[in-house]
Design a protein around this nucleic acid. Structure first.
Lengths: 212, 212
DNA sequence: ATCAGTTTGTCAATATTTTAACATAATAAA
DNA sequence: TTTATTATGTTAAAATATTGACAAACTGAT
């Protein structure tokens, strides 16, 4: 099914959005859609949608379009949402807690299996049935539970060292909320930086542009 | 100083990252840097950095490089961080509270001036010295305080209608944490979608790729 | 069964983004 | 002062990404 050559990251970054829109259409009771109609709803070109999907196979039918349910499933498979990976959360401050409580990771390919924080006062507390462990237990926990990925909600200053430790414990990817670019330090490891500051500054720029 | 033709969003999206790295260098006591050295630290090409900066003016000197402090200031000005805009937060659930408490908006060009939530039990509570208002007070508040921007931390289902109301009340930009693409609905309004789900799915894809 | 109308997958053309190359100008050392 | 070195701003080339065009294939109505 997969075409062998590697797919550009521009395409990959659009897949979750397709997945989301197709989910919406499904919940509206729709069962089929053409690239043209989908493109209008998403604010893209039909050509781009067809081009993107073609990186992975042929999911549509001429004269008919795409089966919405089928296509969403396929994109889910491509993204790997079906076989959840184990995730641990490092840092149970406001952001960490918000993510753990508010965010359904299971439907996005991950299961949260452990929470850690340096702060002794937090240890023992429970978030969504998971106890917050002391950082001292990290080593042991990772060897027992083999998590695949870590969510970093820790101060900037701690980011590099904690990430270094985690890489040595076998962590393969980071969802990084720290104001620090991990990708530069760890080539070969997957990093998704969520730089909230950056997006806010971009918004600031854009608001100024329409004003002036 | 500004060159008149509009600058591509690829360039704009890199500016906050430059700003951040330059801040780091400053705090390390460095005062000058060449595009070559900066590129190595950031994992870019020197050419790209020079090209990017050139969209806005000439900030360096041949044979010397860039003055770090000066360049950071200039990028801050370009982004508009100097003249803070007024922001309101809609939705004081976990994510909303985490942002309000955890996040320094002032240094990113915004001042948080009001918080709103539909839930009656939250109203009256205080977050960082700001009271949480009922949504009924939104109209009055906006007319009095003229906020420029709204942070949306509300359920998906409410997103469109709330945004619609806010646009009518003069809001010019959204920092949108809802799983919903506002940009499609409101052309002309600035929207920064923070789709945490999307970045998590992208990470899932990438972790699978290195596994297989 | 036939035929007009759709819509895909793909190839080719266009546009955008990134990288490389280099003339020019400043630095810093002799 | 002179000269070798450094490093910018800018132009040109290469690489990517997006869009347009169309033959082939299916739908659905007659």
């Amino acid at each position: 099914m997969n075409k062998s050559r590697s797919v550009s990251s521009s395409v990959i970054k659009r897949l979750p959005r397709y997945h989301r829109f197709l989910g919406d259409l499904r919940s509206k009771g729709m069962y089929r859609i053409s690239s043209k109609e989908l493109s209008e709803r998403m604010g893209l070109t039909a050509s781009q949608i067809r081009q993107d999907l073609n990186c992975f196979g042929e999911f549509g039918q001429q004269g008919y379009g795409y089966n919405i349910e089928l296509l969403q499933e396929e994109i889910g498979k491509i993204l790997g949402l079906n076989s959840p990976k184990r995730a641990i959360l490092i840092g149970a401050g406001h952001m960490g807690k918000a993510l753990a409580m508010h965010f359904d990771m299971t439907s996005k390919g991950f299961d949260l299996i452990g929470i850690f924080d340096v702060k002794p006062s937090l240890c023992g507390q429970t978030v969504r049935d998971l106890p917050i462990h002391s950082m001292e237990r990290l080593d042991e926990f990772c060897r027992e539970n083999k998590p695949d990925m870590a969510i970093l909600c820790i101060p900037r200053s701690a980011a590099h060292d904690v990430a270094d430790t985690l890489v040595k414990l076998g962590i393969k990817g980071f969802w990084n909320f720290t104001h620090y670019d991990l990708s530069v330090d760890f080539p070969g490891i997957c990093v998704e930086n969520v730089h909230l500051s950056d997006s806010l500054m971009t918004l600031c720029y854009n608001i100024n542009r329409i004003d002036n």
